[in-house]
């Protein structure tokens, strides 16, 4: 065994450096598979958006930009706290690391809570695809006007031309994409819990912090997915 070895090097690795590099490469490759996984949904989104641009405009307008924007801020903040957690773990400040992990987890729950509020609103407004789906673009347009929003010529045409079935397609993709993202957030929260327990137990140190580091990569990735989802679903249709 090499001189670098310590108690945390698994039996099949030569040394801590090899173990750390393997863990990192493994997580990066996992993230590649995640990119391909979401990529399938992004492909479907892109194709349908180019086929039915009007429906995408209407779909976007029915989403709450305030809630979505708030959630984006929450996730960006959580990326910061996650980075702080990793940094603290690396510099042997395990107590601080545990606190940052708790904060990250809490921000994750805030995000999920807001998502629940959004989903509940969609259920109330019959915007969940399926037999109960109902949307009347003209009524929605009237609501926009009643709210004092300046409705341009282009927007009016979009609302007039949008097919409710295609708006349903938008919502199928909305739920599939944000739902998949939420599943990743829930898994992320689970990982935070596991990190917290181990950190409290004193498993990690400046000698061994691979799990905190690669979990951080995962958490940042999930944030980045949202950074793509938010403009694609909430913003592009509003231009």
């Amino acid at each position: 065994m090499s001189s670098h070895s310590n108690a945390h090097v698994a039996h099949h690795f030569e040394n801590a450096e090899q173990q750390r590099q393997s863990a990192q490469l493994g997580m990066w490759i996992f993230l590649v598979t995640e990119v391909m996984f979401f990529g399938g949904l992004f492909a479907a989104y892109t194709i349908y958006r180019s086929l039915y641009p009007e429906a995408w405009v209407v779909g976007s307008h029915l989403l709450s930009i305030k809630l979505g924007g708030f959630n984006t801020a929450v996730l960006l903040a959580s990326s910061l706290t996650m980075a702080m957690a990793v940094h603290a773990a690396q510099t042997d400040k395990q107590k601080a690391s545990a606190n940052w992990i708790i904060l990250t987890m809490l921000l994750g729950f805030v995000f999920l809570g807001v998502k629940v509020v959004e989903y509940a609103g969609k259920i109330d407004h019959h915007l969940v695809p399926g037999p109960h789906f109902f949307v009347d673009p003209m009524a929605e347009l009237a609501k926009l006007e009643a709210a004092g929003i300046q409705v341009g010529q282009h927007l009016r045409h979009a609302f007039e031309g949008a097919n409710p079935n295609h708006i349903q397609l938008f919502y199928s993709l909305y739920f599939a994409m944000t739902g998949m993202h939420a599943v990743h957030m829930i898994i992320g929260a689970g990982i935070m819990l596991w990190l917290l327990v181990n950190t409290r137990k004193g498993v990690y140190s400046s000698q061994y912090f691979n799990p905190v580091e690669v979990s951080g990569l995962y958490w940042h990735f999930v944030d980045i997915v949202w950074i793509f989802l938010f403009p694609m679903l909430y913003l592009i249709g509003r231009h």
Partner: peptide, 13 residues
């Protein structure tokens, strides 16, 4: 099938 999808210029939906 879905007459509102593409409205010809100069006509109402």
């Amino acid at each position: 099938l879905n007459s509102q999808a593409k409205i010809v210029a100069g006509f109402q939906p």
